[in-house]
């Protein structure tokens, strides 16, 4: 897990689980909700960025989902994992409200280039970040070639570091499907990265 993500997770949490914070939010605890925003803003922006390929759409989408989360807070029941609850809202928002604004169903390579300029680097150490930046660009272009369902599985699992169970419940698929998708994704990425000159 990278440092920025750690910072997001710890921010304002006070050792409470996501579910605890959401239940407090349901009782109009604004501070608890702010802690949740701190935990999941990065995840949501990253998710929307890598499905839409547009940084501004990503920020808007993440913001809309969080505001909607506040407005439906009283409906939350702790029987379901908070992550699944949030990501279901995010995916519905992407499918219903944002996807039609993006011309191509797949992520355009030029979008990956744009995103590569704005990525957090995520390695903490600036020297390591600089060393890896070129390889990161190549990886970004390869990820842009993946199908949308493979890309969102890769983002939640490998970029965000979520467990297979969390990814499965968030995407509404069995855990075996997540494992199978990841297997295919890593194999495909290795092939693509083996000949970067062939990437679009």
């Amino acid at each position: 897990m990278n440092q920025s993500h750690d910072a997001d997770v710890k921010e304002g949490s006070g050792g409470l689980t996501d579910e605890d914070l959401m239940l407090r939010s349901a009782n109009d605890d604004v501070a608890a909700f702010e802690a949740l925003v701190g935990r999941y803003r990065g995840t949501l922006v990253t998710y929307f960025a890598w499905v839409s390929g547009d940084r501004h759409l990503a920020e808007d989408g993440a913001q809309e989902v969080l505001v909607k989360l506040w407005s439906v807070r009283a409906r939350y029941r702790p029987s379901s994992r908070f992550r699944a609850f949030l990501m279901t809202m995010a995916r519905n928002h992407w499918i219903d409200r944002v996807r039609y604004q993006v011309r191509r169903p797949d992520l355009a390579p030029e979008a990956a280039e744009l995103l590569a300029d704005q990525m957090s680097g995520g390695f903490g150490d600036p020297v390591e970040s600089a060393k890896n930046s070129e390889r990161l660009r190549v990886l970004a272009r390869a990820v842009s070639v993946l199908s949308e369902e493979h890309r969102e599985t890769f983002i939640l699992s490998c970029v965000e570091g979520w467990s297979h169970a969390d990814v499965a419940s968030s995407l509404g698929v069995p855990e075996g499907t997540v494992k199978s998708r990841l297997h295919h994704v890593l194999r495909r990425l290795r092939v693509l990265l083996g000949s970067p000159e062939a990437l679009p």
Binding site: M1, N2, S4, H5, R41, G42, V45, T46, A49, W50, R55, A58, E59, A62, Q63, L115, Q118, M119, S120, G121, G122, F123, S129, N132, R135, L136, L139, A140, V143, F154, I155, C158, V159, E160, G161, L186, L189, R190, L193
Partner: peptide, 16 residues
């Protein structure tokens, strides 16, 4: 690949 994947994270803006 898994190590570099962490770097694909897109940071939200400061005012987010």
């Amino acid at each position: 690949i898994l190590h570099l994947a962490k770097g694909l994270r897109v940071a939200p803006s400061a005012e987010f």
